[in-house]
Amino acid sequence: MEVLTEAEKVESLKSFRSTIRKSENALSSMTDKGANTTLVEKRLKALRIGLAVLEQVWDGKPHPYTHEDLAEARILLAALLPSIEGIHAKSKPGSPQKTLLETRIKSLELAIQALDDSTDKDLS
């Protein structure tokens, strides 16, 4: 995993927590409306796993997730990247939204890398 400053780590964790909160709010709203929540629930679980893996790598916090959980989370997080990158490409240069999306993309990439690293360790 690449070497990051403490500020970059904090920013990535903050971004993940924000994304999780937004997903929880979306899930609540969808549940209230009776909409199908399967995809949002899976993404939310993947986001929580991504956060937990980063906290494990950077802070030594253990997590309860299985190898299968990690593998599924990696797939779901990687699937989120293209849509976020598309929105990022369309956002105004220098805008707060563009900055937020850059941080979100970086945090997802770091989580995917950490999931790859943890999967590699499991296989050796």
Rank of each mutant, 00 (worst) to 15 (best):
E41W: 08
L81Y: 01
S28G: 11
V10R: 14
E24D: 06
A114G: 07
K22S: 11
L27R: 10
I84E: 03
G60F: 06
K90V: 07
T119N: 01
K33A: 15
D120R: 10
N36P: 10
N36L: 14
W58E: 12
E8G: 04
R104Y: 02
K45W: 13
L47G: 09
K9I: 15
L77D: 03
V10N: 06
E72Q: 12
L101C: 03
W58M: 13
L13N: 04
L47E: 14
L100M: 10
S124Y: 11
G60S: 07
V57Y: 10
S95P: 02
S95T: 01
A73T: 05
A79I: 03
A46N: 14
S83V: 12
T99G: 01
E55A: 11
K45H: 15
S15Q: 00
V57W: 07
D116I: 04
P82I: 00
S28N: 08
L51I: 02
E11T: 07
E41P: 03
T103Y: 02
D32Q: 10
L13V: 01
K90S: 12
N36W: 13
P82G: 02
T66Y: 08
L108Y: 08
I49H: 07
K42A: 13
H67A: 13
I75V: 12
S83G: 06
L77E: 00
L77S: 08
D69W: 06
L110N: 07
L54N: 14
T19C: 08
A89D: 10
L101R: 01
L110G: 00
G50M: 06
S124T: 11
S91N: 05
S23N: 07
R48F: 04
V57M: 12
P82L: 01
D117C: 03
E109L: 05
E8N: 04
K45M: 13
L76P: 05
N25H: 09
S91C: 05
N36I: 15
L77M: 06
D122K: 07
H67N: 09
A111S: 15
E102F: 02
E24R: 10
A46Y: 12
D120V: 06
L115M: 02
L115C: 02
P93F: 08
R48Y: 05
L115G: 02
S95Y: 03
E2W: 04
S83C: 01
Q56V: 09
S28F: 07
L81G: 03
V53D: 13
N25I: 13
D122M: 07
A35S: 15
A79G: 11
Q56P: 06
E72D: 12
V53L: 07
P82N: 01
E11K: 14
Q56M: 14
K98V: 03
